[in-house]
C-alpha cells in the first residue's frame, strides 16, 4: 500500500537552502574552534587511559564458563546458549559423566565448549538463557590474537577467564 508522505511546505527562503547551509557551516565551525581551543573534551586516550575502574556491573565483556564452590563445571551442555547465540559463535560437544565420578548425578557435561570470539557480539544472550548459571559475561574486553585459531576460546580458556562463581544456586544437590 502506498502511503503518501507528508512533506513540509517550505517558504522561498527555506527552499533556497543557502541560509540553512550557512547556519550548518557555522555549527561545524563552532565545534572546530571549540575543539582546537580545548573547550570540548569527550574522548579519552585509550591504551593510556581506561575506564576499567568505572565499568558498571552489567558490563558485557567476554563470555566465560564458571565453576562453583564445589569445583564443578556448572555447564551441563544443554546447548541452549548454542541455540540462542545470534552469530552462532558457540559450539558444544556434549559428553556423559562416568558413573563413578563425583558428580555422576549430573550425567552430562561439555566435552568441548568453544566460543569463537571473532564471531561473538557480546550480546549476553548466552548468560540470559543459561538455566544452570554456568556462563557469564565477564569484564574483560581485550580479546586479541594473531590467528583465527587463537581467537577461539576453548573450554580451558573459558574456565580460566570465568574462575569460581560464589553464591550461585546449587541445584544438583540430593534434594533436586
Amino acid at each position: 500500500m502506498a502511503i503518501p508522505a507528508s512533506r513540509p511546505n517550505l517558504n522561498w527562503r527555506e527552499r533556497a537552502f543557502l541560509p540553512a547551509i550557512v547556519s550548518g557551516l557555522f555549527i561545524t565551525w563552532r565545534h572546530f574552534v571549540r575543539y582546537i581551543f580545548g573547550r570540548t573534551k569527550v574522548t579519552i586516550q585509550y591504551p593510556e587511559q581506561t575506564r576499567d575502574a568505572d565499568l558498571p556491573d552489567y558490563y558485557r565483556g567476554t563470555p566465560a564458563l564458571v565453576k562453583d564452590e564445589q569445583g564443578r563445571i556448572r555447564c551441563v551442555a544443554c546447548q541452549l546458549c548454542e541455540f540462542i547465540c545470534p552469530p552462532r559463535a558457540i559450539k558444544i560437544l556434549p559428553g556423559e559423566i562416568p558413573t563413578d565420578d563425583r558428580f555422576a548425578k549430573v550425567e552430562k557435561y561439555p566435552e568441548e565448549f568453544d566460543i569463537d570470539m571473532i564471531r561473538c557480539i557480546y550480546c549476553g544472550m548466552c548468560e540470559e538463557v543459561c538455566p544452570e548459571q554456568a556462563i557469564f559475561l565477564r569484564k574483560d574486553y581485550v580479546v586479541t590474537g594473531f590467528t583465527r585459531e587463537e581467537m577461539v576460546h576453548r573450554k580451558d580458556k573459558l574456565l580460566e577467564i570465568g574462575g569460581v562463581m560464589h553464591g550461585v544456586v546449587l541445584k544438583w544437590n540430593d534434594k533436586k
Binding site: 551441563v76 551442555a77 544443554c78 541452549l80 538455566p131 533436586k176
Partner: peptide, 11 residues
C-alpha cells in the same frame, strides 16, 4: 519429577 530439563533428551 526432577528438574533436569537441561540434560534431558526429551526437552
Amino acid at each position: 519429577h526432577p528438574l533436569d530439563c537441561p540434560i534431558c533428551d526429551q526437552a
